[in-house]
């Protein structure tokens, strides 16, 4: 399998829309009180050496006499604030704020890599876990320490309280990116891991380097 990668075109594509809109929705029901944020304001995501500092306070959601702060989870600029909901009771999932998040270098790289790596996708909607031996390896030395080949028992599929193994199918290579999160449902067809065939690692590294030099991060 040879990939002809037009990194430049991919980059141009992304440059045309260099941000993504993050909709901050009410995680649960409650009465909304917005913090003093306005359209155009800069917000930050989680920071600190240990991720211990929360992002900018966006709003407060009060439910059962319990005020719960709602923080921005990514750096960006406030697009829309649904002020009309101030002081109102909202249902779970109601959009409150839209943040325009400019892609960072790492995000652009991840974005492009998704287009060039071999993606092994979820055969069904379920929760996925690495099998314990691989999980240990990933946690200890990162996903790139794992080499996969067809027929390797890679995942545990957990659905409706039952678990079954899932074998990897696809080219042999190392796991370059992991797209699923622990304890979260993955939709059918969504990628689980991105695999880089052994003979293409240089190519991939080249892509990464190109992005690093070409991409300028915006505030």
């Amino acid at each position: 399998m040879l990939l002809v990668i037009d990194v430049k075109a991919l980059l141009e594509n992304i440059k045309a829309a260099p941000y993504e809109e993050i909709v901050v929705a009410a995680p649960h029901t409650g009465t909304v009180t917005f913090a003093g944020i306005e359209t155009g304001a800069h917000v930050t995501g989680i920071t600190g050496a240990f991720g211990e500092k929360p992002g900018t306070l966006l709003a407060k959601l009060t439910r059962e006499n319990n005020d719960k702060p709602l923080f921005a989870n990514a750096k960006g600029v406030v697009g829309v604030v649904h002020r009309e909901l101030e002081g109102r009771f909202v249902e779970a999932g109601t959009p409150l704020v839209v943040i325009r998040h400019y892609l960072s270098k790492d995000e652009v790289i991840a974005n492009i890599l998704q287009k060039v790596l071999y993606l092994f996708c979820a055969p069904e909607r379920a929760k996925y876990y690495f099998i314990p031996s691989i999980d240990k390896k990933v946690k200890a030395s990162g996903p790139r320490s794992v080499t996969v080949k067809p027929g390797l028992e890679l995942f545990i599929v957990s659905r409706m309280k039952r678990e079954k193994p899932l074998l990897y199918e696809g080219p042999e290579g190392i796991i370059y990116a992991v797209y699923f999160q622990h304890d979260q449902n993955v939709d059918q067809g969504a990628p689980l891991v991105g695999v880089c065939p052994a003979d293409q690692t240089d190519l991939i590294q080249d892509v990464v380097n190109r992005v690093r030099t070409d991409w300028e991060e915006k505030e």
Binding site: H28, T29, F89
Partner: peptide
């Protein structure tokens, strides 16, 4: 009908009940 985050969360049920 109210959309809630979970049927398992008593706080959701009671917040909706009050509203």
């Amino acid at each position: 009908a109210y959309r809630v985050s979970s049927y398992h969360d008593a706080n959701e049920i009671l917040a909706v009940a009050d509203h």
